[in-house]
Simulated assay, not measured.
Amino acid sequence: MARAQFQKGQKVWVECVGAWAHIEKVCPVWAAGFEEPVRVTYDVGLGRDFLAHELLLPTDDPAVSDMGDWRLLRARNKWQPLEDCAHHPQPGSYPVVVTDTADWGGWRVPGAEYDRDPARIEMQARVIAIAPRLMTLAAQMIDFVSDHPDDAPAELLELAKRARATLREATDVLAPAPESLPRPADAA
């Protein structure tokens, strides 16, 4: 028998989509002869119903949740001859940002884009790799300032507000799709 693990209106992380959403509807599946549902799915407004194992609860602050250990790897550039990439910071390779769960996938750029400005791409890779730690640091600063608002200098209060707005950009739930699209006559 299945029991609902989430409730309507609850904020969840949809793992396979990689986005925050709200439970719009709990959908139990009943079968004759059973007193409880045999399966429970959840409608989060993303086009299909999800099972409980596809959804995760946020911690008190999603920015503080463990995002894993992101790290920078170097992948061999097998499509470009070494003499064509001698001007790269590390000739013959390019950066790949991966999580601690796998050494494949992750963030990477096309070779032509890397070749155009390798120093910029190397910088972007390092920023992406440290982003979870920066988010945790910002959330800790916000918590400290909110625990001691009277003792914090005005500059620190302003920094905490900016940090909260920046974290919100990364952790906010996707807006639900509109019920209907406006007609061109209505848009004018």
Score class of each variant (00 low, 15 high):
6 F>P: 08
6 F>K: 04
11 K>L: 15
14 V>M: 12
18 G>T: 05
18 G>Q: 04
20 W>M: 12
20 W>A: 08
20 W>H: 09
24 E>W: 15
24 E>K: 04
28 P>G: 01
28 P>Q: 12
36 E>T: 04
38 V>T: 06
40 V>A: 04
51 L>N: 05
55 L>P: 11
56 L>E: 11
59 T>Y: 13
59 T>M: 11
60 D>W: 13
60 D>S: 04
62 P>D: 09
63 A>N: 07
63 A>H: 07
63 A>V: 12
65 S>W: 15
67 M>S: 13
68 G>Q: 11
69 D>S: 10
69 D>I: 11
70 W>P: 04
71 R>N: 07
71 R>G: 13
72 L>Q: 04
72 L>I: 14
73 L>A: 00
75 A>D: 13
75 A>E: 07
76 R>K: 10
77 N>Q: 11
78 K>Q: 07
80 Q>A: 07
80 Q>W: 03
81 P>V: 02
85 C>G: 06
86 A>Y: 12
86 A>I: 07
87 H>E: 08
89 P>W: 06
95 P>V: 01
97 V>F: 02
98 V>D: 01
104 W>R: 00
108 R>L: 13
109 V>E: 02
111 G>N: 03
121 I>G: 00
125 A>L: 03
126 R>E: 05
128 I>F: 09
131 A>E: 10
132 P>Q: 14
132 P>I: 10
134 L>N: 13
141 M>Y: 13
141 M>P: 05
143 D>M: 14
148 H>C: 15
155 E>S: 15
160 A>S: 07
162 R>T: 15
163 A>V: 08
163 A>K: 06
164 R>T: 10
165 A>W: 14
166 T>C: 08
167 L>N: 09
169 E>H: 15
172 D>R: 13
174 L>S: 06
175 A>Q: 14
177 A>S: 15
178 P>N: 05
178 P>Q: 12
185 A>C: 03
186 D>I: 00
